[in-house]
Design a protein around this nucleic acid. Structure first.
Lengths: 225, 225
DNA sequence: AATTATTATAATGTATACAAAGTACAAGTT
DNA sequence: AACTTGTACTTTGTATACATTATAATAATT
């Protein structure tokens, strides 16, 4: 009874958090374009709230690096420069590799089973050629590794960094030419982690992220023209 | 003339940022203790501002992980659990090691000179036995390595993580028994980076952070009693 | 015609107001 | 004595108001 109450409590979300999620989604999906100004009154009207929750959401986006503040002019969606993207990808690679290493040391038998299921589900998802389904399965696979790494801060940082390049990654899963490569890479990652072979896992994740990086950069170059 | 104006423009800081820095400082120095509630009206009165800048500052602290929000109850200073500290230190170690590796690849001759100066300054600072001066010199040394790594996102993350353990690190520099060890470690880091010996640099930074970690944990255990 | 002033408009920065939820404590009930 | 119930009070969540600064468009001047 008390538990049920506790559960339903979770449903309450302050407007600032709703706005935060909405704006972040908008930025990541590209609905809000880099350089676009985020004007409080406009957003408030559009979302049907007052300026206060908007402002508080923007403060969080600011710290996350998704918007930049110009004093007395307001917020605008952060530009993704090539250097910036490079920096994010570089750090993400390091952290993903580190997560794989930790996962080798800490993964439980239960998690091994989950990882196997996720790997299988990913291969099936790829076959459906539904990019959304594949992307979700891909996320699930990596989430299990992160969970196995057992470091909440690491999880938070990797997820945040992944978010910053989200708009591009989706496209990379779409590209059918890379499907067999993706499956192969996941298999190598799975095998090495299950064997607790740290060096192999680090290497497998490293090349996996490298390839993703290449795909993203191709994408970016294509977009520029 | 325009430049001067530009410069003076920088002096303007929105109250929210002043409050943000003030509160963060308060948390990191321990003036605001873990578990302590941050009540908006009290803080507003104490700092002589309205609730609005306070709230916006809290939103940023929330995302930084320095305060936690309890819905409809407000913010309180985040507890540092042992697990949490462990997680932060673990990630910080990985990123610091990574920064050293990048620094080996990218450090310019100019930066090498700066690093030498910083290393010398650190040794002199240690001799003065003034903990504040030593700590500052220590920060300077590590900042140069980060700068040489040439990755802004990495710099941001490392600084943020360092901040989370700041309240303990200060104490570790104070402990005179560790002085010779610190000097020795800095020398090894300096030497390996200048030689662009990635493996050695990674190892040197690794043990440096490990030792720091031990010191912090001793500190924490001592505080508990 | 180009450039500077002027002025109206709109946006941010900050403070305040008000409603809803949470807290604590006293009074009443079993 | 333990447990509700009620009530005053505090605090957050949200909206709005006001002041200051930026923006843009028009008029005035060279």
């Amino acid at each position: 009874m008390k538990d049920m109450l506790q559960e339903n409590m979770d449903e309450y979300l302050p407007l600032r958090d709703v706005v935060f999620k909405t704006l972040r989604q908008g930025i990541l999906t590209g609905e809000l374009k880099p350089g676009e100004r985020l004007m409080e009154i406009h957003l408030a009207n559009r979302l049907g709230v007052s300026r206060t929750p908007i402002r508080e959401a923007i403060r969080k986006l600011e710290l996350e690096g998704l918007v930049i503040m110009i004093p007395r002019r307001g917020a605008e969606v952060a530009q993704i420069t090539e250097k910036n993207l490079q920096d994010v990808l570089e750090v993400r690679r390091a952290l993903d590799v580190f997560a794989a290493k930790l996962a080798c040391q800490r993964m439980t038998e239960e998690q091994k089973k989950e990882l196997k299921e996720a790997a299988d589900a990913f291969e099936k998802a790829i076959e459906t050629k539904d990019a959304t389904v594949s992307a979700r399965a891909d996320v699930r696979f990596h989430d299990i590794i992160l969970e196995a790494a057992g470091n909440d801060r690491l999880t938070q940082l990797v997820n945040n960094l992944a978010e910053q390049v989200y708009r591009y990654r989706f496209e990379s899963v779409k590209d059918e030419r890379s499907h067999s490569r993706l499956i192969e890479e996941h298999r190598r990652i799975y095998d090495s982690i299950v064997k607790r072979d740290e060096k192999a896992a680090e290497e497998a994740v490293g090349t996996h992220v490298d390839n993703q990086e290449k795909a993203i950069k191709d994408q970016l170059r294509a977009m520029k023209q």
